[in-house]
Design a protein around this nucleic acid. Structure first.
Lengths: 148, 148
DNA sequence: CTAGATTTAATCGTGTGCGATTTAAATGGT
DNA sequence: ACCATTTAAATCGCACACGATTAAATCTAG
């Protein structure tokens, strides 16, 4: 069966490996994030805001590659949780700025241990993890050139 | 800001790169799969069944790392589309076998061009793609040992 | 032989992802 | 100044993902 298209097996496995690995990482983060009542995508958005506070939804979208249809509800939940506040831009009412609240800023320190704990959950060497990141980033950059 | 925990930036970026790359691949597949009215997870499940027809939900779950709470509705949709049929096992009524219909089997040929078309959508070398797959699989294997 | 543990799917609730559309605001060419 | 176009965010609908629970069948220890 699978030998019918022998050349195509690599691709099949690569797309699946990526899909499975991504979900596996999400699953690893979940118990750590649950302690702060965060989901993984919410944590990603916070990582972006911890780097640069006061971004517009558009900017968060560009960095996360998520559109407003995903971000708007997610940001509303973060607002409900008291971690961010959203303010319409005076100079352009279409735009919406997102600011960390004090609680949102404080959460950065509370989450500081998470990456280290994650590191401890894989036996892969730092070298290979960096290699992996490098290949993924190269793929993403090539894609950005193509797809806009 | 981001220099506050300099050691942790790698991890942050790795988890995000993986997350972004996985969604990017899904987005690349979507227009190709839409021609056959398939979603990406449905395609993954079909890839598994094209390799081995007549698996139980449990087996598909083990290979895809998806649980019944995701697979049951997905398989019902594939059944609605006339691509698979589900039959309870006579010898153990808890189990549910999943078989490809003739249309489901025929779809394998129709989808044969997809991996090649995907290949054409990235400028990354075959060598690097294989390297990427290899690293992802190593990560997944290490995880399987740990988490069961 | 049977009560309790285990296994397998299915169900439920919440939160993404994303294509498509909508709404409102700003822009730009005439 | 006016209207078509563009832009930013929000809304809508659908299909995942997944933790938690449920239901039913099977297994197992006593």
């Amino acid at each position: 069966m699978s030998a019918k298209f022998p050349d195509l097996n690599l691709d099949k496995q690569l797309c699946f490996s990526l899909y499975a690995a991504s979900r596996q990482v999400t699953r690893l983060y979940q118990p750590l994030l649950k302690r702060h009542d965060l989901t993984y995508p919410q944590y990603i958005v916070l990582l972006i805001l911890w780097q640069t506070d006061g971004l517009m939804v558009k900017d968060i979208g560009h960095q996360s590659q998520l559109k407003s249809n995903t971000l708007t509800p997610l940001l509303k939940r973060l607002e409900q949780s008291g971690l961010v506040s959203r303010k319409r831009a005076k100079e352009d009412e279409r735009q919406c700025y997102v600011f960390l609240t004090d609680r949102g800023k404080a959460l950065e320190n509370e989450c500081a241990c998470i990456p280290m704990e994650m590191m401890g959950q894989t036996d892969m060497s730092l070298d290979k993890l960096m290699q992996l990141k490098s290949l993924l980033d190269e793929f993403l950059q090539l894609q950005e050139k193509h797809g806009g």
